[in-house]
Every structure is written in C-alpha cells, then in structure tokens.
Amino acid sequence: MNEKVIAVVTAGLTTPSSSRLLADQLAEAVRDELSGRGIGARIELIEVRDHAHDLTNNLLTGFPSASLREVLETVAGADALIVVSPTFSASYSGLFKMFFDVLDDQALAGKPVLLAATGGTERHSLVLEFALRPLFSYLKALPVATAVYAASTDWGPNAAGLRPRIAQAATELVAALHNETPTQADPFKNPTPFEDLLNS
C-alpha cells in the first residue's frame, strides 16, 4: 500500500499538554483521511521538549547532536507536517521557534503544513495567521488554508466546534499531498562546477 510520512512537531511543555492532545487528534484525522483514499500513514511524532537541550546546544555550537540530527532528517524527509505550538506572549513559544531555527532553511520547501496552536483563551487565535503562517511562508512551505486553534474551552463545552475544524484542516492537508513535492538539490552530489563559479 502506498504510504505517506506525516511528521508531527508539537511544542507543549506539560505532560499531558493540550498541544499534544491537539497534535494527536490532527494526526488521527489525517490518518483517517488518507486511509479513506487507500493510502497508509506513518506518523512520526516529535515532542520538541525532548530535544530542548540539544536545540540550545545546536544554536551555540552550530551543529546538531546525533539524536537531534535524526529528528531533523525525519522532518526534512516527511511528505507533510503538522505543527502545534502553545501561544506564549502573543506568539509561538520560543522552544517551537528554536526547532525551526536550527532546521535547514530549505528543508520545508514545497512541503504541505498544517498549522495549529493552543492557548488559554480564544482571543489569541489569530496567532496562527500573524505568527505561524508568515514563519512557514518564509520557509517556503505550503501551509494549508485552514489552521486550527484550540483554547481551553475547546476541550469542554466547545469540543463539538473543534472537531469539524480538525477534519477540514486534515482534508486540506491530504489534498495538498497530491501535489508533487519538489526535491532538494544536493550540493555535495552535484557541486557547481568551478568554471561556473569563476564566471558568475
């Protein structure tokens, strides 16, 4: 069976965290949507918290540790991404941003991304549009139109309102997956010939 790799990057801090809860629901919705089309899903879950020290070290030394390198390669190699950040001080969390700061800036080019965020109050929901979306546009990813925000009330009285938003976003992500993902040129396999460098 045809299989798609979906990397889920979630930056919640507590256990359990509402970001992780949202990440799991999004991943399941994407799996259902894919299976409805006869496509398998391999979900690669990445809790950014587990790599907090390695991320700091990477910023300081300029290179990832062996275990962080594996995670970054998983993200770069995935067919699509689901990203979830808690809302901190009116934006994505610093830890969430650090992950994408150390990721190669070409790694997400052309990749469909489902944007999601959590927060204490729904008043922050536009964080998805003014913080997350520009970040992923900069990284040349393809964020799908529906982004999902879950506030505290979405886990209680408003849960019925959250589910269709999750389903809608999952449908859009799977639809975007059918577009060809451009592959990245490897400068080590195909170096620019020196004559071209001399004449540029």
Partner: peptide, 10 residues
Amino acid sequence: SPEIAEQAAY
C-alpha cells in the same frame, strides 16, 4: 561550503 572544496580541487 561545498564551493570552497570545489575551488581547492579545481
């Protein structure tokens, strides 16, 4: 930078 490895090799 692979370009510099290329330069040295050239």
